[in-house]
Each structure stands twice: as structure tokens, then as C-alpha cells.
Deep mutational scan, measured.
Amino acid sequence: SPEEIKAKALDLLNKKLHRANKFGQDQADIDSLQRQINRVEKFGVDLNSKLAEELGLV
């Protein structure tokens, strides 16, 4: 269901964000992850996106 997909995506992105902060990645990478999280919260996951591929939806 779209809600489950959204939850999985947010979980994955939050893990990536945590790792980025923990290991001191570029601020641009961290900002990009934050924008992705905001986009998923607002609009859900686009099944044509790279994120959908990472989640194994495509």
C-alpha cells in the first residue's frame, strides 16, 4: 500500500541521514537527504525514482 511504501522510504532515508551526520558527509548531501524526506512526507514515493529502485519496488 502507499502508506507502507512511504513508511519504508522514510525509514531508509532517515537511516541515510543519520549515517551522513555520524560520518560527517558534505552539508550538501545532508541537505539533499532532508529534501528527499520532506518530498516523501508530502507526496509519497514516485515509482519511477531511484528511491523506488532502492526499495525494490521497480
Rank of each mutant, 00 (worst) to 15 (best):
N14I: 14
R35N: 10
K8C: 11
V40C: 02
N38T: 13
D46E: 09
A28V: 09
G56H: 05
D46T: 07
E54I: 09
D26F: 07
L33F: 03
N48V: 05
L10E: 01
A20D: 01
S32I: 12
R35A: 13
A52K: 01
D26K: 12
K22M: 14
E54C: 09
L55W: 03
K15L: 12
Q34C: 09
K16T: 02
K15R: 14
A7L: 12
E3F: 08
L13K: 00
A20W: 12
Q25C: 15
N14M: 14
N21H: 15
D31C: 10
D26R: 11
L12P: 01
S49A: 03
N38L: 13
D46W: 05
L12V: 07
K15Q: 13
N21V: 15
Q36G: 01
P2A: 13
L51N: 02
I37F: 03
V58D: 07
F23Y: 13
E54R: 05
F43Y: 13
S49C: 04
K22V: 13
I5V: 09
K16S: 04
G44R: 00
K6D: 02
E41T: 13
S32D: 14
N14E: 06
I37P: 00
E54T: 06
E3L: 09
E53M: 14
L47Q: 06
P2L: 13
K16E: 04
L33Y: 04
K16V: 04
V58F: 09
G44E: 01
S32T: 11
L12H: 08
E53I: 14
R19D: 12
L47R: 05
E54M: 10
I37L: 06
H18Q: 14
E3Y: 08
E4R: 08
K6Q: 05
R19Q: 12
A28D: 11
N14T: 12
A20H: 03
P2I: 10
F23P: 04
R35I: 08
Q36R: 04
D26L: 09
N14C: 15
I5D: 04
N48F: 11
E3C: 10
I37H: 01
E41I: 14
I37D: 00
I37K: 04
D26W: 05
E4D: 12
P2N: 12
K8W: 10
L57C: 05
E3I: 07
K42P: 01
F43L: 06
S1V: 07
I30N: 03
L57T: 03
V58K: 12
K42F: 06
D11M: 13
L33E: 01
L17R: 02
L47C: 07
D31A: 11
K42H: 08
E53K: 13
D11F: 11
K42R: 13
L51S: 01
R39A: 13
A52I: 05
A7P: 01
K22Y: 09
A9L: 06
D29N: 11
L17F: 04
L51D: 02
L57N: 03
D29H: 14
V58G: 09
L51Q: 02
V40Q: 00
K8Y: 08
K8T: 05
A9P: 00
Q34N: 08
Q34S: 05
L17W: 03
K22T: 12
L17T: 01
G44N: 02
A52C: 04
E41M: 13
N21I: 15
K15N: 08
F23V: 08
P2F: 14
D31G: 05
K8Q: 09
I30V: 08
R35L: 12
I37G: 00
D46A: 06
K16L: 14
D29S: 14
K6P: 01
E54N: 04
E4Q: 12
S1G: 10
K22W: 09
H18D: 13
V40P: 00
I5P: 02
N48R: 09
I5R: 05
A9E: 00
Q25A: 15
N38Q: 14
I5A: 06
V45H: 01
Q27S: 08
E53A: 13
A7Y: 10
Q34Y: 11
I5M: 12
D31R: 12
S32P: 02
L47Y: 08
I30C: 03
H18M: 15
G44V: 01
F43I: 04
S1D: 11
L13A: 00
N14L: 15
D29R: 14
K22C: 13
V58Q: 10
E53N: 07
L12Q: 04
N48C: 13
E41A: 09
L12M: 09
L10F: 01
A20L: 11
R19E: 11
G56D: 05
D26T: 12
N48Y: 10
I5H: 07
D26E: 10
Q36H: 06
V40D: 00
S1W: 10
S32C: 15
K8D: 03
E54V: 07
E53V: 14
K15A: 13
D46P: 08
K8I: 10
E3P: 05
V45K: 00
E4V: 10
R39T: 12
K6G: 02
P2W: 14
A52V: 04
A28I: 09
Q25W: 15
I37V: 04
G56Q: 06
F23E: 14
E41P: 01
A20Q: 04
S1R: 09
N38E: 15
K50R: 08
A28Y: 10
L47T: 06
Q27W: 08
L13T: 00
A9C: 05
Q25N: 12
D26M: 08
F43P: 00
D46K: 06
H18A: 15
K6I: 08
E3N: 07
A52W: 10
F23T: 11
S1H: 09
K42T: 08
L10N: 01
Q34W: 09
R19I: 11
G44P: 01
V45A: 02
G24E: 05
P2D: 12
G24Q: 07
G24H: 09
G56W: 04
D26P: 15
L12A: 05
L55N: 01
L47I: 10
K6E: 02
I5Y: 12
A52N: 02
Q34L: 15
N38P: 00
L51H: 02
E54F: 09
L51V: 04
K50G: 07
E4S: 11
L51G: 01
L55M: 08
L17A: 01
G44I: 01
R19L: 14
K16Q: 08
Q36S: 06
G44H: 01
Q36F: 07
S1F: 09
D26H: 11
K22D: 05
L13Q: 00
H18L: 14
R19K: 10
G24F: 06
D26I: 09
E4M: 10
L12W: 13
L51C: 04
A7I: 11
K50S: 12
R35P: 00
D31H: 06
H18W: 13
N38S: 13
E54L: 10
R19C: 14
R19S: 08
E3W: 11
K6F: 03
L57E: 03
D46H: 06
A20T: 03
L55F: 03
S49E: 04
S32Y: 15
E54Y: 08
N14A: 12
K50L: 10
N14F: 15
E3S: 09
L55H: 01
Q36W: 11
D31I: 13
E53W: 15
D11T: 07
K22P: 03
S49R: 02
R39G: 06
D46S: 09
A20C: 06
Q36C: 14
L51I: 06
A9V: 08
Q25E: 08
A28P: 04
S1I: 07
Q27N: 07
N14Y: 15
D26N: 14
E4H: 09
K42A: 10
G56N: 06
N21L: 15
D46F: 05
L33A: 01
Q27V: 07
L57W: 07
F23L: 13
K15P: 00
G24C: 10
I5C: 09
V58E: 07
K16P: 00
P2M: 14
D46R: 06
D11N: 09
N14G: 06
K42Y: 05
Q25F: 15
D31L: 10
A9I: 09
D31W: 04
N48E: 08
K6C: 05
D11C: 15
H18I: 14
A52D: 02
L17C: 02
A28R: 11
S32R: 14
V45F: 04
I30M: 05
E41C: 11
A52M: 07
E41N: 10
D31E: 13
